[in-house]
Every structure is written in C-alpha cells, then in structure tokens.
Design a protein around this nucleic acid. Sequence first.
RNA 1: GCCGAUGUAGCUCAGUCGGUAGAGCAACUGACUUGUAAUCAGUAGGUCGCGAGUUCGACUCUCGCCAUCGGCUCCA
Length: 643
Amino acid sequence: MAAEIAVVVNGVRSVVPTGTRAREVIGDRSAVAARINGKLSDLDCVLEAEATVEAVGPESDAGLEVIRHSTAHLLAQAVQSLFPGTQVTIGPTIADGFYYDFAPPRPFTSEDLPEIEKKMRQLAKANLKIERSEMAREAAIALFERMGEHYKVEILQGIPEARVSLYRQGEWMDLCRGPHVPSTGYLRAFKLTSVAGAYWRGDEHNAMLSRIYGTAFATKEALDEHLRLVELARQRDHRRLGREMGLYFFDAIAPGQPFYLPKGIVIFNNLIDYIRRLYRRYGFDEVVTPQLYRNELWHQSGHWENFRENMFLAADPEAATATIDTGAEGWRTGYGVKPMNCPGHTFVYRAEKRSYRDLPLRFAEFSRLHRAERSGVLHGLTRARVMSQDDAHIFCTEAQIEDEVAMNLAMVREVYATLGFAQVEFKLATMPDAHLGSVEQWRMSEGKLAAALKRNGVEFEENPKEGAFYGPKIEIYVPDALKRRWQAATIQLDYNLPERFDLSYTASSGSEERPVMIHRAILGSVERFIGVLLEHTGGILPFWLAPEQVRVLSLSEKVEAYAAEVAALLRADGFRASADLRNEKLGFKVREGELAKVPYMVVVGEREAAARSVAIRLLRGEKNQSASLEELRARLKSEPLPG
RNA sequence: GCCGAUGUAGCUCAGUCGGUAGAGCAACUGACUUGUAAUCAGUAGGUCGCGAGUUCGACUCUCGCCAUCGGCUCCA
C-alpha cells in the first residue's frame, strides 16, 4: 500500500498519508458527512486510495438526511433507555423528517413524547461519539439474537451481503448502513411530532408496531420555520375551510358523506358544467344509469369477488327470503349500490348492435357512487363514502387505444392547467403479480400508455406492479396542503369487462371482434377534487367557481335601496351577487367579505348612490377603483369562463 | 379494520382533588348611521358524544359503543 495518496477535496488536489480520515482533509468544521468518490460516507471514513472528497454541509439535502437519520437513532437510543424491553425495527427518513418503529411492551402515547424528547436532548448534550464498525452477517445475527432484538434478526436474515455495518453511540448500538453525523452533539434542532400504529413490514396481517414521527433540521431557526409552515398549511385544511366558508359539513348521522350547503354545491355544479362543456368538444356522450343493481350484475362483473367489502348491499324486500348473502342462491335476492359505473355502461354498449364504424364510443356519467370505506380511512371530502366522478368509459378497437389515451391525456392537461395545478404527477402503473392475460399483452398495453404519455410530452414515473388486475393504468396525483398526495385523474385499460359481458362489434371484415374498454376520470372524484382545490387555493377560487362572486356593501341605511338595486341588477345579469345591508361599519363588512373570499366587493355610499356608480374592492385588499354601473357589469362579464 | 389521541353552547376553547358548568366569536334585542380586515350595551343559548357501571353524589373514575383527528393497511 502506498504511503501517500492523492485526494481532491472540494476541487483542490493534494497529497495526504494513507489512512487519513475524510474529516481531516475537509476543512469545513460544520460538515456532517463526506461524499467520497460520489458516495455518501461518514466523516471518520478512512481514505485508503486516491479519492475525490467533498464536504456535505448540514443545510444540503444529503446533509439534512444524515441529520434526520442520526436523530432517528438518537430517538431509538432514548426510547430503549427509558422503556426497557422495547425492540427496535426500522427508522428511515421521510420527506420532512423521520420515524422509528418500535415493538414496545405497551404502545407509546403522545404523552410519552416530552419525556423521550428530554432524554434525547440529554444524549445529544453528552455529545456521544458515533462509531461505525463492521462484522460478519452471521455474527451480527448471533449478537442481536442474544440482545433479544428479533426484528433486527429478521432484517439481517434478509440482507444478502456477507458483512454488515453497525453504529455505536455510548452504550447503544444499531444495525445500520449509515452514514451518520460524527457525534450526537451535532443534533441540535429536532422535535417529535406524533405517534401512530404501523404494521411490521406494512402488512396488516403482521404485528402492530408503535411508530414515533419526528423532524430535524440543521438549525433551530429552520425547525421553527418548518413548524410555522405546517401550522399555516393546517389552516388551509379543506375541512376547516368548508366550515368557515359555509360550503359543506359532516355529521355522525351519515359518516363519510358531506352535506353540501348552497354555497358548496355551486362549486360542485360549476366544475361539472365545465367538464360538460369539454365533453362537447372532445366528443363524449353523457348517460345516466341505475344506482341499484341486482347482485347478479356484480357477480358477472367480478365486483362480488373483488370489491364486495367496499360495497353497500341491500336486501330485496319482495324476495321470499330477504337476505343478502346466505345460502347458495341467497345473493340473487339482493341488490348492491353501485361503487362504479363501468358495469352499467356495458349495458349501454350492448343496447345496440355495434360496428367498427361506431367506435370509439365514449359514455360519460356523473352519477353518485357509494363505497363502504373502512372507518379509519375517511378524510373529509378527499376520502368519502359517496362521490361523483367525472367518469367515462370508452369502447374502442385495439388499434384506437393509443389515440384515445393520448386524447384523454390532453384533456387532463387542459383541465389541470386551467385550474392552476402546475405540478401534477403522472405515473404509469404496470402489471401486478395477480393479473389476467399474457405478459406479452401487458407489455404491449403498457407500451401504448407510455407512447401516449410521451406524445403529450409529460414526464412520468413507473409505479411498478400497481396496475389493476385487468390492465395497466395512468394515475395522476395532486398534493393537499400538507403535501399528502391524492390520486385524482386516472386512465385505465380493461380487457376483462368486455370479456365478462361478452361485448362485441362487427369488424370491416364482417367478423365479430371484442372491443377494449378504457376507464377514465379527469377530476377523479369531484368531492376529492374540491377538497384538494380548496387546499391548493386556500379557498380563493377563480371567479367562475366562487360561490359568491360579488357582495355589495352598503355604507349606511341611507343607501340600502341603492345597494339592493345594484345586487339585483347583477343577479339579473346571471352573477351570484348579494348585498350586505346590515347595520355594521364598513370595516366589519369588508373583513367578513375577505373571510368569505368573495372576489368582488362593491362599496356604495351616498357619493356612489348620487352618481349611480360603485367603488370596487378586489379580494386581498386591491382596492378602491371607482366605476360606473356599466363599467362594473362589463368588467364582470369579461371574467373568463373556461371550456 | 388496526394503533394512539380527542369529543363541553352554532364555532374556537377553559373547567383544579368527584359536589349537576364558563369565556370569546356567532345568534337575538337595542343604541350608534358608519368610507375599505372586528362600534358599544344587553338577552338568550348546554341530557358535558351515546349507553351502562362504581359512588350519597360523575363533565370528572371504569367498561362498552359511535364519531372525529394523526398514522398503518386499503383506495378515487
């Protein structure tokens, strides 16, 4: 081995003795880790050959990740010292922090967090050195076996490498790939945020572990700023906005189902009207099919087998035995409320003899769908038990698939751009392990979806094995205020349903062929979309969607009649206008208008009444533009209506 | 469904050791006649989520159920 090696540190070349540690060649004392030949490593990593070394600062993405990962270890150390008998499992970093899953004698509660956090601070203050070591995998298994860490043993048994790395800080140690900060003193700004249950390895058949979430930053200031932003995001929660803006509410009498108030349904209806206008342009035909079907339908469609747990079922009161699922033929007497429109649409398809000249056929429907969601998953409008989708089923030939998917993607892009969603995530969900059809057919359909995506020039990632069992799909995700991702739009290929319902069309050759079905929704669930849209906009909706578009504020009793006349005039023009004639000061009325997020406030006092004019105040305080009544009406009429 | 937490007036929340409840906003009434994010005063409003149990006595302690919140699993 050479006595000296050449290193390039942050772009500067030098020669150091072999065995020098990365920390020694990096001058920067604030560094939390090193990048050696591009690989993230500990600062104590020994340099044994020529290397390029870069400092990883605490504020960089990689540095933050190291800090968070090390903080997760600190958490585990604190927990094991406070709660003997607790086993550790895994503790990864996540988008804004980290978590650690434990198997404790009793589950943790949020009341345990302050004590754990206090212990973490003590351990951080002790500035324990964090040391890496390696050992043979078998030796590590024996070691953790002795320590009673059965989950770690299970993890080790799944690791292919012969040698594994361990990290020790003080008396405590953990199996870990690293890297970590050099000592616990580097961890200064962290906070434990919540506790939750989580299944071991994410499988609900496994044991329920106790998970603790936390976050960590390079500085106290960055941590405080993050906590402040989280708090601001909470105020955008659509459940809060829905109540504050008087849009909808929920009641225990109908779990998971919104009561839309007059203002809320305005948003709902205008979104649907917008999609309807697009349907005229894109060539869709709207239909309405039944809500309640004999269970025979669900047997034929496969929903009985695959979706029954999520369906609301009802007995037939006229049946001799009014049961739902008892006895061999019991199901025939029952009904099921539709959770999807697709089976109904196959009946629309079958209503006539179809030929290749008819295709593609595009049937759209906005009917309400009901799904018996498990109680723990409900989440305001974004996860409800009733929803209306801007649903459509396209029946086409194999050769038409790519064009159809590309056309629907264009529609998706138009809608999301119009509604102001700049960062939409596209995913291509591919063949799952349990699937119908041949691998070749799957790869071909996936290729068609990918080609349609590329034709639209959108970036997308694969979502491996996440396709439906009957075909691949394109999923479109949008984030809520807390950056949780919700699936909105979807485009799915389906070879199964046409088969089950024996659909066919006459080809030009005269032979009977099987059409392909494409399920697609642009907004997805209109409920979910409204929820995400409210969080995205903070409730400040575009003019065409605003429940109340104009509010006329009267300055005193003397101008009551004029204010009412202005509002009536605007209503006659078709605007959603109201007048606030209450005996209150202007400042109070303006405040309420702001809180209600009315885009136009129109102030009228004696000056305006005399001149038959108004003072326009836009939302967010852009104020005081005097205008004649005609100017106001012209201005409102120039507000764009999309589609 | 699972883990943890929460549930008090329309909304947001206090309520100590077990002795049958309080504020602000909203509502209603009145005064004020208002110029761009909260005028003042008064009045009314509660089976303390629901049901059992312990106790002389339960908003408070115990159990069950329901709903909600944060996660997990599932999913649009």
